[in-house]
Amino acid sequence: MNIFCKKELRTLIIALSLICSGAFAQSKPPMQPVANLEKTKVSIAVGGKNLFYYLPLTIAERLGYFKDEGLDVEISDFPGGAKALQALVGGSTDVVSGAYEHTINMQAKGQPIQAFVLQGRAPQIVLGYSTKNMPNYQSIADLKGKRIGVTAPGSSSNMMLNFILAQGGLKPSDVSVIGVGAGAGAVAAMRSGQLDAMANLDPVITMLTQKGELKVISDTRTLKDTKTVYGGNMPAAVLYAPIAFIEKNPNTTQALANAIVRSLKWLQNAGPSDIVKTVPENYLLGDRALYLEAWGGVKEAISPDGLMPKDGPNTAYKMLSGFEKDLAGKSIDLSKTYTNSFALKANQKYK
């Protein structure tokens, strides 16, 4: 066989292999969406969508996972979790991507909502003080009378602040809380000297600590630090909805849980470049290297499977009990604040 025949034979073999592999790929059945969705168009409210805290939601949206489940999802972004909750209570959204703690507070108010898939297994919230305004900071007591930024009053960052204040013998009323959002506005507020301290999340925190503008007081970005602060596993972002919505739309709820669990699985194997390519450019806050550094510090805070840890609800309840007056004398049934049934089924579909 001459050289030309050999080349032609190799070309033919490569072509056939490509055709066969393509046929095989096409023969693999795609993941089927959940059948008989009660509601295909779903609105989700979130407070600070650019945060790593809500990254699984962004991944599910950007990679088309909601669409693959047969859903047409509209996401509305608010300055903080408390605002997203208000949208749910007001009836302008179906579901919230927000902090689990809200399910406990709302039960105490007679408005039962339930978490049905976990996005984060550590809060990722950091409380720090301004090195410019408080160069002589020594202890929590020094925060009395100070201006402290949170994503939004009543949000999970505000709850974390209140908890840490209580550890230092201070009440929420001992400080001035200022909502600054979770993006460039929060960074600007700290740099301009408007704030003496801040409870916020990454990438905002890493941007400020990297420049030496913020010193950490309390950190919950890793599982170890979270257990040190709260004494146990502390659930963070979840998808939650009124129990009435979940009972009326179980297939739609399952589809939402499927999309989030699929994004959690993707995140477990994604490299830094995958993250940067997937999220919107404005998430990077103008500094790609810093964004990736921040991601490395919070990656383990992302839930691997969407399941609520057994001790998580009680850890959250004990935290809230330290400062939430609305919980005083109230009997809270933690088993009604979350369900793992949807996440368990989602893990059977996406392994």
Rank of each mutant, 00 (worst) to 15 (best):
N282K: 14
N314F: 11
F116N: 06
G296L: 02
I3N: 13
G312A: 11
Y100V: 00
L223M: 11
A255N: 02
E61K: 15
T220V: 07
N36T: 10
L256W: 02
I275A: 01
S130L: 01
F24K: 10
T206C: 06
E293H: 14
N158P: 04
G297I: 04
L170K: 04
G145D: 03
A115F: 00
T103Q: 03
V34Q: 09
G154T: 11
K215E: 12
G22L: 13
Y350A: 03
V238H: 12
K144I: 00
A84R: 10
N314A: 11
Y291K: 04
L320M: 11
Y54C: 11
G70S: 05
P235G: 04
L290N: 10
L284W: 09
E324A: 14
S173A: 14
I275T: 02
S331P: 02
E213T: 04
A188P: 04
A152K: 11
Y65F: 15
M234H: 15
D196L: 06
A182M: 06
L267W: 05
K299L: 02
D333E: 06
I14S: 10
F78C: 08
D94N: 08
H102W: 11
F66V: 05
S156L: 09
G47S: 10
A115N: 04
L127D: 09
Y283C: 10
A84H: 08
L285S: 06
A84W: 03
Y240V: 04
A316Q: 13
I59H: 09
V126C: 07
Q124P: 03
N233T: 12
G271S: 08
P280V: 10
P30K: 05
D274A: 03
Y65Q: 06
S76K: 15
G47W: 05
P250L: 05
L165R: 09
G81Q: 08
K248N: 12
D287L: 04
V261E: 05
L9G: 01
D287M: 02
T131H: 03
L127R: 06
L239I: 01
L12I: 13
I243Y: 01
P29E: 14
S27V: 07
L37H: 03
A346K: 02
I75K: 12
V261H: 04
R62G: 03
P235Y: 01
P112M: 02
K265C: 06
L344F: 08
D68S: 13
K349S: 08
L223P: 05
L71I: 09
P309K: 03
T337M: 00
N133W: 05
I260G: 01
Y291I: 04
